[in-house]
Simulated scan of single mutants.
Amino acid sequence: MAENWREDEEYVSYIEDLLATEEVQKLANYTQHMNSTRLEHSISVSYNSYKLAKQFHGDAKATARAGLLHDLFYYDWRTTKFDEGSHAYMHPRIAVKNAEKITELSDLERDIIVKHMWGATITPPKYKESYIVTMVDKYCAVKEAAEPWLEKINRYKLRLKKEWN
């Protein structure tokens, strides 16, 4: 997860109202990428995207808020199927509807949430902030899924090194 986000006063000021909601806190009850909760994943995407948006002179506040809300859905994506489309297509639309129940969304925030699965979906993002969240989401997903495997490999390498010494 994104370390030190709690120490970034500006970032926290942008998302603290959302983090205080039951709707966002419920994300802690869902596993996301095998080894993280959906809340941990969302904070990681939000904070890392916020930092990049600042670096690239984007709307850091909208990026932080939409990044936190991009996966605001309450089902196990591995088992739930939809007649209307794939999980990649459906969950951003569900997330937008859920987000609109707890906060007013700008056009930018709506685009970030709906388009964050671009690559797996057809319609490209409209704003640079949407591209940032899209790419950071992919990076965080791979990192979250791969970290335990990399730790296991590193432990194995250490064990072999000790055996050979």
Rank of each mutant, 00 (worst) to 15 (best):
K61D: 05
L150G: 00
E109F: 13
E22I: 11
K61E: 10
Y131F: 11
L150V: 06
E9I: 01
T63A: 00
W77H: 10
A141Y: 02
Y75F: 14
S106A: 03
L108V: 11
N165T: 04
D76K: 07
M34A: 11
Q32V: 00
T79D: 00
C140G: 00
V142Y: 06
L69A: 15
H116Y: 04
S86T: 13
Q25H: 08
E16V: 08
G119L: 10
D76E: 12
A88W: 03
Y30F: 10
T37R: 06
K157V: 10
D76H: 08
S86F: 02
E9Y: 01
E151T: 08
A20F: 11
S36H: 05
H87F: 05
A60H: 05
A62H: 05
K81E: 05
V96E: 03
M135P: 10
M90S: 01
Y127N: 13
S42L: 01
H57G: 07
K152M: 13
P125D: 00
V136E: 08
V133F: 12
K157A: 09
A2C: 06
K54T: 03
S42H: 01
R110S: 00
I43L: 15
Y14C: 15
E40A: 13
K157L: 13
R38E: 07
E7K: 15
K161H: 08
Y47M: 01
E7T: 04
Y127F: 15
I94T: 06
H41S: 09
K61T: 04
R65V: 01
W77Q: 07
V12N: 12
I15T: 11
A28N: 14
T31W: 00
A53I: 01
E3F: 10
L39V: 03
E22V: 12
Y131L: 07
T79A: 04
D111K: 02
H91W: 00
T121W: 00
G67M: 14
F56E: 02
L19A: 09
P124N: 05
H57S: 14
A95L: 05
A95Q: 01
R6F: 10
P148W: 05
I153A: 11
D8W: 07
C140F: 00
E10Q: 06
E9T: 03
T31Q: 00
Y131R: 03
K138I: 01
L72N: 11
E22G: 14
I132C: 14
M34Q: 09
P148M: 07
A2L: 09
R110G: 08
K161N: 02
Q25S: 15
N98V: 07
R65T: 04
G58I: 01
Q32M: 09
K126L: 07
E151P: 04
V114T: 11
G67S: 14
L160S: 09
T103H: 15
S49H: 14
V24G: 14
E7H: 10
W5A: 09
L68I: 07
A60Y: 10
V24F: 15
E109C: 11
D8Y: 04
E40T: 15
D59W: 07
G67V: 09
V12S: 11
A66C: 08
S13T: 09
F56V: 03
K143W: 05
S49Q: 06
K97L: 00
D76G: 11
